[in-house]
């Protein structure tokens, strides 16, 4: 069987690099700019994750199927994030073209209803 695993020497080097990156990310937290800060923090975290995946998790010896499986989860996550945020990032202009006031007032209406008819929302009512 192919016993391809990372040598202990490489393990120690990677661990060293991970610690350096940890220090870097704490220092980078001093960046006052919110957006830049998050980009740097995520970049460093991604590099750390890649080091762990490639060396500790022996993906550099893996075949293409395994590599595909490694990528699959992250690709799926990017799809989720990108399309979900496409909603949040573009909700502002919705105001201007006047979306349904019913939707926007729904929680308020619900609370008002609860004040008027507390019994309808009291726990314990049942069929």
């Amino acid at each position: 069987m192919a016993a391809h695993v990372t040598s202990s020497r490489s393990c120690y080097i990677v661990f060293g690099a991970l610690l350096v990156l940890l220090v870097l990310t704490v220092i980078a937290a001093g960046i006052e700019n919110h957006t830049l800060g998050i980009i740097v923090a995520l970049l460093i975290a991604t590099v750390k994750a890649l080091l762990i995946i490639v060396y500790f998790m022996n993906v550099r010896f893996a075949d293409w199927v395994t590599r595909l499986a490694v990528a699959a989860g992250f690709v799926g996550l990017i799809v989720l994030l990108a399309f979900m945020m496409s909603d949040y990032l573009t909700r502002d202009p919705v105001d201007e073209i006047e979306t349904s006031p019913v939707t926007r007032a729904a929680p308020e209406a619900f609370e008002a209803l609860a004040l008027l008819h507390p019994e309808a929302f009291a726990p314990g009512i049942s069929v």
């Binding site: 399309f83 909603d87 202009p93 073209i97 939707t103």
Partner: peptide, 18 residues
């Protein structure tokens, strides 16, 4: 199939652009 889920949310307050 993973790129289309927002069609369930057209009238629930999702951004019109999305």
């Amino acid at each position: 199939g993973f790129f289309v889920w927002g069609h369930h949310m057209f009238v629930s307050g999702q951004s019109v652009y999305a």
